[in-house]
Design a protein around this nucleic acid. Structure first.
Lengths: 143, 143
DNA sequence: TGATGAATTGCAACCGGGTTGCGGCAGCCC
DNA sequence: GGGCTGCCGCAACCCGGTTGCAATTCATCA
């Protein structure tokens, strides 16, 4: 419960999402986390809330562009709060880093996902750019 | 059975993979396909072969750098034959395109996955670059 | 305030990709 | 042949994600 729930209500309303207590909980968890969270991450944090409720909440959030999902190739989709007022566009999407040691996914907010030119006739909707490797703290530990 | 099985045996041997009839079948299927194949794609094509055998075969291939896997964010990992003699490096990895209409994954062989600079201390092992959208033939159909 | 209908939630069951244990079989070396 | 090793098929399992359904909550309006 890191954030003022009034603030969160405002955000939800601005995105056109009806406010409920569960939605506040989920949004709060997502905003308080420093990293993208998976469904089961959220399940762990919000252990009073049913998995399917979290799932459907995320569906609603995503439809209203309050969050976006990223696939870091671990087999579990991660969710992240959209920055700014309007919906995320391709060029907003930043790169992500997945650590093969500690299995955490990091946002590389300062690095935009590079956009390539597609062959004629292909239409781009979104980009996923994932780097896999070893993160800073793990590579330090190993040295 | 598009390829000469002698050729396939040679390839497997060169990668240090013991040759068996199933491994020839799997490698043949992968090489004959124009697109990356998932475990269940292979299951369908090779309907006489057990899923777990294909799975373990792919494990062996991957360990010996005969194939590499890509995650296109569909929830099923795809496999692709490594080009060339030695193992794939990060800079070899090309971009992939996932069509949200026909649910096919395309290799954009001519487009290398762009490589970004990581923050200090992060160590890169591999890159996944996936563009999602609508492919040429689907966008033609819709017009 | 109370009734009504729509939206939300919890529960349980399901689905499908991926994974594993195990027993049987094939190939190889002695 | 006997024994060893590795490969294969079967069945069962795991887990993230998803759905049907009944119960609850919420907003609205009489």
């Amino acid at each position: 419960m890191a954030m003022d729930s009034r603030k969160i209500e405002e955000i939800l309303e601005k995105k056109g999402v009806r406010v409920t207590s569960i939605r506040i909980l989920v949004m709060d968890a997502l905003m308080s986390a420093s990293r993208p969270m998976s469904l089961s991450d959220l399940e762990t944090v919000l252990d009073t809330v049913d998995k399917s409720s979290i799932f459907r909440t995320l569906e609603v959030f995503e439809k209203h562009h309050a969050v976006h999902s990223i696939d870091d190739g671990t087999g579990s989709v991660k969710f992240e709060v959209c920055e700014g007022e309007e919906e995320c566009t391709v060029s907003d999407m930043h790169a992500h880093f997945y650590c093969e040691k500690c299995h955490k996914t990091f946002c590389l907010k300062e690095i935009n996902a590079p956009v390539v030119d597609l062959p004629e006739g292909f239409e781009m909707h979104s980009v996923n750019y994932i780097v896999k490797g070893v993160c800073r703290s793990c590579s330090r530990k190993m040295a």
